[in-house]
């Protein structure tokens, strides 16, 4: 038990990973072997990057001690701006960074408002959720821009590759970003500052860390990743809708929390956030394949989120009491 607790304390995301394996087995049995066949894996892996990228950003920001509810709206705004520019004749190579720049601007605004007026980022980004969604609907004029089928570089982001066409290219973009952000957090001095800022702000400040800049940078990374994820989804679907990504912000928070990230900041890993995102996708897909009414999906995610936090805090307390004995 002690040993288990020690491993858990050092790597809380492993509990999520174990649960993911168990669920996979359960769904595999319940679906008579359909769950792990190539076609279904193709489906799961095709959708995972879009939510996973958002979860990576949200996890990083939560480790830094802040919160972003506007990612779902940024997820829609970024590709919408890109598509409008492209409809007007701008090539993809310019319209794509322009969309991401807009996402970065939203992230900067989130950080600036939160820090300058020292208000909870929950409030700033809740406001931004509405503002950005509204902008997205208004600029689209209610009619999504029309893009010719070959305008979007599907070959760069969403075509199927690999054995049996198992992977969409977006999986590799997702993995690359995951590895990069993970290294940023664990290997660089910036990562050390992020953890310090989220772990105990007064200490970070007294050691001279530019905490305002660190937080703003995390807000911006989070927004840009959400925008990138939205862009990938639009490339996959072929057309931007102003309603994309609604409810995604809460799923992303759920993913981070399920993966062991603490709401109070300082604790968590990018890998954990990804595990959380994968769990959500697997549950979504597995319930359908097990012929359970799809409306139970949100129920399952809800229970899992609460369970994860309760289990985390219980295990942490338990581990502490054991340490006192030794």
């Amino acid at each position: 038990m002690k040993r288990f607790l020690k491993i858990y304390l050092e790597k809380p995301e492993l509990a999520g990973l174990a649960f993911l394996v168990v669920l996979t087995l359960v769904f595999q049995v319940r679906s008579d072997g359909v769950f792990l066949n190539a076609q279904n894996l193709q489906g799961i892996l095709g959708l995972l990057p879009e939510m996973g990228l958002v979860a990576i950003g949200v996890t990083l920001l939560m480790i830094c001690g802040e919160f972003d509810l506007s990612v779902g709206s940024v997820f829609a705004l970024t590709p919408m701006l890109m598509a409008i520019l492209m409809e007007g004749g701008t090539p993809f190579i310019l319209a794509f960074p322009a969309g991401l720049a807009a996402a970065a601007a939203v992230g900067f605004a989130n950080g600036f408002l939160t820090i300058r007026f020292s208000i909870p980022s929950f409030i700033t980004t809740l406001g931004m959720l509405f503002v950005v969604r509204s902008i997205t609907v208004v600029v689209s004029g209610g009619f999504p821009p029309f893009l010719p089928a070959d305008a979007l570089p599907k070959w760069l982001f969403t075509v199927y590759v690999g054995p049996a066409g198992l992977f969409r290219l977006s999986v590799f973009w997702f993995l690359a970003v995951a590895i990069l952000v993970s290294l940023l957090l664990t290997r660089t001095n910036f990562g050390n500052w992020v953890r310090a800022t989220g772990g105990y702000l007064p200490a970070a400040q007294s050691m001279g860390i530019p905490t305002a800049r660190v937080k703003t940078a995390c807000f911006m990374i989070c927004s840009v990743l959400a925008g990138f994820a939205g862009t990938i989804q639009v490339i996959r679907l072929g057309a931007p809708l102003p309603s994309l990504g609604e409810g995604l912000e809460l799923q992303a928070v759920a993913a981070a929390v399920i993966g062991g990230t603490a709401l109070t900041g300082g604790i968590g890993t990018i890998f954990g956030g990804i595990i959380g995102a994968a769990l959500i996708r697997v549950i979504d897909n597995g319930l359908v394949l097990s012929q359970v009414d799809a409306n139970w999906f949100k129920m399952a995610i809800g229970f899992l989120t609460i369970f994860a936090v309760v289990a985390n805090s219980w295990l942490r307390k338990k581990a502490k009491s054991i340490k006192v004995e030794t």
Binding site: N189, N192, W193, R195, A196, G199, Y200, P202, A203, A204, S206, M207, G208, I209, G266, I267
Partner: peptide, 19 residues
């Protein structure tokens, strides 16, 4: 209320801001 971040390791704490 010391200038240490409780959620980080000793090595990381010693070098906060001066890694």
């Amino acid at each position: 209320y010391n200038s240490m971040v409780p959620t980080m390791t000793i090595a990381r704490n010693v070098f906060i801001g001066r890694e």
